[in-house]
């Protein structure tokens, strides 16, 4: 059996070492990653994927620890991908999300993986989506993705998760500032954490008011909940809402959402494939370089160059 086949068999059998290795391959080796995903894909789609996002310091990691415990109490197995930023200057990363979840690392029903963004934008890493597929294929009932501290534009998580929980905390600055766009529009459930602090009701009201401004017709009205992640207060209620949203997806919007997700993935895959094929082709004959030189000399702009290339390669259109 090849190394890849062995890893795939291990993942499907739920073997923890194989899951860990598969994710490493996905992060480092696109060609092998494709082979792994191709083999496990038919076994995915069973886990409920929850995205947890929100500004840094709102308590995402601590809350996730409590969410995991609650799911474990209900007999569910859980996988976690926790994303932290890569330093754009050194390429290194400090991954500290596990600090809050450490006791869970010896629970056989829990698998936690830290992941650096490696400068991918949008609040997750390029490999996050496929790491989620690995955990899904390994038989986890629930997969949780923790994004980097996010606010206004880190919304890539919608391509990965079915239920998105946006976590805020009172006192992180002007709420309106923090929530003017971005995460405000992607949340299925909103949580004001650290609800033992002052001004929590004001935060809840602010968020409700923001949500009401949206004129989108919605079959699902995002609830706004209060939690105290440190003590676990409100977490059982949060799980109820997550489960309610899961059932809602199964009933109504689920198929449409799955379709949208599949469509985005297919479009992106085609873009990537076609682009790399085309570039490879151009490089063979040194054309890439000659277009590049023309662009540098300002003789042609990049978009016109791309059009010309396409016409030539695909024959007029």
């Amino acid at each position: 059996m090849s190394e890849i086949e062995e890893i795939v068999q291990g993942v499907l059998a739920g073997d923890r070492r194989s899951i860990a290795k598969a994710i490493t391959v996905i992060e480092n080796n696109p060609e092998k990653a494709r082979r792994i995903i191709a083999s496990i894909y038919p076994h995915t789609g069973k886990a409920h994927v929850i995205g947890v996002t929100g500004p840094g310091g709102s308590g995402k990691s601590t809350l996730i620890e409590k969410i995991i415990r609650e799911y474990r109490r209900r007999g569910k197995t859980v996988g976690v991908v926790a994303v932290d930023p890569t330093s754009p200057f050194t390429g290194g990363a400090f991954l500290g999300d596990r600090i809050r979840m450490q006791e869970l690392s010896v629970d056989e029903g829990v698998f936690i993986r830290s992941m650096a963004t490696r400068n991918y934008l949008g609040g997750i890493a390029r490999a996050t989506k496929d790491a989620v597929k690995v955990l899904d294929a390994s038989g986890r009932d629930v997969v949780i993705v923790e994004t980097v501290g996010a606010g206004q534009s880190e919304v890539e998580i919608i391509k990965v998760a079915q239920t998105i929980v946006v976590v805020f905390a009172p006192g992180l600055g002007d709420e309106i500032q923090a929530i003017k766009a971005g995460v405000m529009e992607i949340g299925d459930i909103f949580v004001v954490n650290k609800a033992d602090r002052e001004n929590v009701d004001k935060s809840v009201m602010d968020i409700r008011a923001m949500l009401q401004l949206s004129n989108k017709e919605q079959a699902w009205t995002p609830p706004v909940l209060k939690t105290i992640a440190l003590t676990g207060d409100g977490v059982a209620k949060l799980i109820e809402k997550i489960e309610e949203h899961r059932r809602f997806l199964e009933r109504e919007a689920g198929r449409e959402k799955a379709r949208e997700k599949a469509e985005t993935e297919l479009v992106e895959a085609i873009k990537e494939k076609v682009a790399s094929l085309m570039i490879e082709e151009l490089e063979k004959e040194g054309e890439f370089e000659s277009y590049l030189q023309k662009i540098l000399r300002r003789e042609i702009d990049p978009m016109s160059a791309a059009e010309k290339i396409l016409k030539k390669k695909l024959g007029g259109c």
Binding site: S87, T90, G92, F94, L95, G96, R98, I99, Q102, S114
Partner: peptide
Amino acid sequence: RALRDAGMEVIYTG
């Protein structure tokens, strides 16, 4: 911190 600055991915567990 030093390892991170050297370009490594460091998991710290507390």
